[in-house]
Design a protein around this nucleic acid. Structure first.
Lengths: 145, 145
DNA sequence: GTTAATGCAAAAACTTTGCAAACCT
DNA sequence: AGGTTTGCAAAGTTTTTGCATTAAC
C-alpha cells in the first residue's frame, strides 16, 4: 500500500493520466523523465535538466506537472535541505534519506534499517510511518560523528 | 552533547548573549518567549504571537532573531509541513516529531523510541543521527493506519 | 471540434538586505 | 559615547495564478 506499482512505459503513463481525464504531453514526459534521472531534484533543477535535453518547458509548467505527478503517485517530495523541496521518482523502492549536515551529502538507506523503529512507533503511538518520506539529519562517517 | 543546558531566566539569556557580544533586547525576549510558548511555530506565527502580547516587532527582526537564537542553540527548526520551517525551543529535551498527513497533528515522541534505530544507523552507515531534527511523516492512530 | 495544458506575464508569498535612527551597555 | 539592533522600505527568491493561445484527444 505504501509502494505503488509503477508504470514504466509511455503507454502506461498515458493510461494512468487518461483515467483521470488528463493528457499525456511532451512536457509531462520530459519532467517525469528528468525526475527519474536526477534522483532528487528541486523544481529548479528539474527545469535545468529538461532544458539540457533541448526542449524548453516553462517553470510554471514544471511546478504544475510535479504537483500532478505527485497526485498520481509517480513522484514524491521530501525536504532534504532548508531551501526547496526535492522530488524523486516512486519507481525505485522507498528509501530512507540520510542527510549530512557537514557536507550535505545524501545517502539512501534500506528501509529495513528502520523496520524495528517503525514497528515500535506503531506499537507505542499507533503511528503508521511513511518510510518513503523519512529524512534523517545528522553527520556522515567522513564528517566524523 | 545533543542536549543543551538551557538558560531559563532573563539573566541567563543576557549572559549567553553578551558572551558573544550580543545584547538583550525586548524584541529578543519576546521572540524567545513566543517560541517557547507556541511549541512549533513559523516565523509568521511567532510574529502574530508577539503582536498579541501587545508589543510590536518587525517581521525582519523576527527572522534575524530566530537565526540568532538558533546560532546560540536556544531554538531549532524543523520542516513539519510543506510551507515554512517551524521553530521550537531547545529548553525541552530533544524529541522526535511525528507528523500526521491526514490531520496535520504533530506528536512528540520520546527519543528512546529511536535509540535502536540510531544505533543501527551508526553501525551500518557510520551515521550520527541528530535526533532533535528527526521528523517522521505518516498516519496517526485516529486517522487510521 | 472540445476541452485540457502551455506559455507568458503579473501577482503573491516568503525571506533577505541596506541604511538611518534608536537603543543597550 | 560607541557599537549593536531595530524598523522601514526596497529588492531577491520562490511559487502561484489568470488568461489567451496551442495542442491532445
Amino acid at each position: 500500500m505504501a509502494t505503488h506499482a509503477q508504470p514504466s512505459s509511455r503507454q502506461d503513463w498515458r493510461t494512468l493520466l487518461r483515467a483521470k481525464g488528463y493528457r499525456l504531453t511532451p512536457q509531462r514526459e520530459l519532467v517525469l523523465r528528468a525526475v527519474d534521472r536526477l534522483g532528487h531534484a528541486t523544481p529548479d533543477e528539474v527545469l535545468a535538466a529538461v532544458h539540457q535535453e533541448s526542449e524548453a518547458v516553462n517553470i510554471s509548467t514544471v511546478y504544475r506537472t510535479l504537483e500532478l505527478l505527485e497526485e498520481l503517485g509517480l513522484v514524491r517530495h521530501a525536504h532534504l535541505h532548508d531551501r526547496a523541496p526535492t522530488y524523486h521518482t516512486t519507481a525505485t523502492p522507498a528509501h530512507v534519506h540520510l542527510v549530512c549536515r557537514g557536507c550535505g551529502s545524501v545517502v539512501e538507506a534500506d528501509p529495513k534499517v528502520v523496520e524495528e523503529f517503525t514497528d515500535r512507533l506503531r506499537d507505542t503511538h499507533g503511528f503508521g510511518t511513511d518510510v518513503g518520506h523519512l529524512t534523517v539529519f545528522g553527520t556522515c562517517a567522513s564528517c566524523g560523528a
